[in-house]
C-alpha cells in the first residue's frame, strides 16, 4: 500500500501524525508530492525526515514553495513570502540541496506523481476543476495521477469515452478505482488546511486491490501553531493551523 503525502509545509507534528497513521494502516511505500517547506516553523525537521525516507526508497517531487527557496524573483502572497524568507535563514545547506535535487514529475508503473498539473509541472497550474484534471491526466498519460498544490482532497476520473467525474471524498471511505478508467487524486494537504477542518490530510493507494482511501488525521495543532508564533512568523499562519482555514 502506498501513502501519498503532499503540502507538508514545515509542519512536523502533522507529518508525524500522518506517517504514524499510514504505518498503522499498512503502508509500505511513501510518496511525497512537494511543498515540504513554507508557512510552518519546522522546515529542517520535515526536510530531514523526508530525505531519510527518500534514502530508503521513497519518492519525492518538488513543489512551488521548495522551488521558491532558490528563486528570489517568485511571486507569492505576503505571509507565504515572509515564511520563505525566514526558511532561507534556518534551513541547512544540506536541506536546500536536497530540495534543489528533486524532480518535478516521476512516472512509476501506471502512476504519475507530480505536485501540480502534469501538463507543465514547472508552471504550477492548479488542478481545481474537471477541465484542469482532464488536462493533467492527459499530459501525465498514466492510469493513476497523484498530485497536491490544491489543498482540498478531490478524486477525478476519466472514462474510456472521455467523460470526467469529480468527487469530494469523505475521510476513511474506500473508493474502488479500477484501471478501466484513468484517475487523478488530489491527495490533500498534510500541513495546512483550507476547508475549516484543522485535521491533516493524506491518501492511501492500494495498487493490487485498486482502491483509494482519503484520510483526515487529527494532530497536535496547538504545538504547530505555538512554534509558528515563537518563530515570529505571521499570526495568520498560526491561526490557519488552529482553525483549518
Amino acid at each position: 500500500m502506498i501513502a501519498l503525502l503532499s503540502d507538508i509545509h514545515a509542519n512536523l507534528e502533522a507529518l508525524n501524525a500522518c506517517l504514524a497513521h499510514a504505518r498503522a494502516q499498512g503502508a509500505t511505500r511513501y510518496v511525497f508530492l512537494g511543498d515540504f517547506i513554507g508557512y510552518g516553523a519546522d522546515p529542517q525537521g520535515v526536510v530531514d525526515l523526508i530525505a531519510d525516507h527518500v534514502a530508503r526508497g521513497a519518492v519525492a517531487v518538488q513543489g512551488n514553495h521548495d522551488a521558491a527557496l532558490e528563486n528570489r524573483a517568485g511571486r507569492m502572497n505576503d505571509a507565504a513570502q515572509q515564511a520563505i524568507d525566514w526558511t532561507r535563514g534556518v534551513l541547512s545547506e544540506g536541506g536546500r540541496s536536497f530540495l534543489r535535487s528533486l524532480p518535478l514529475c516521476v512516472h512509476e508503473d501506471q502512476m504519475c506523481f507530480v505536485h501540480a498539473s502534469a501538463i507543465r509541472p514547472e508552471r504550477w497550474v492548479y488542478v481545481d476543476d474537471k477541465t484542469a484534471a482532464y488536462e493533467s491526466i492527459h499530459a501525465g498519460g498514466a492510469i493513476y495521477t497523484f498530485s497536491g498544490h490544491v489543498h482540498d482532497q478531490m478524486l477525478y476520473s476519466l472514462s474510456a469515452v472521455g467523460k470526467m467525474t469529480s468527487f469530494r471524498p469523505l475521510s476513511g471511505n474506500v473508493v474502488p478505482a479500477g484501471s478501466h478508467r484513468q484517475w487523478l487524486a488530489i491527495v490533500g494537504a498534510v500541513g495546512q488546511q483550507r476547508d475549516n477542518n484543522p485535521a491533516a490530510g493524506y491518501t492511501l493507494f492500494d495498487p493490487v486491490r485498486k482502491d483509494i482511501v482519503f484520510f483526515r488525521v487529527p494532530y497536535d495543532t496547538e504545538a504547530a501553531a505555538r512554534k509558528i508564533r515563537a518563530a515570529g512568523l505571521p499570526e495568520s499562519l498560526a491561526l490557519q493551523i488552529e482553525q483549518g482555514g
Binding site: S157, T165, N173, V175
Partner: peptide, 10 residues
C-alpha cells in the same frame, strides 16, 4: 454518497 457518481451529468 460515499462513492463518485459515475452517472452525474452522464
Amino acid at each position: 454518497a460515499r462513492f463518485p457518481d459515475l452517472l452525474a451529468e452522464e
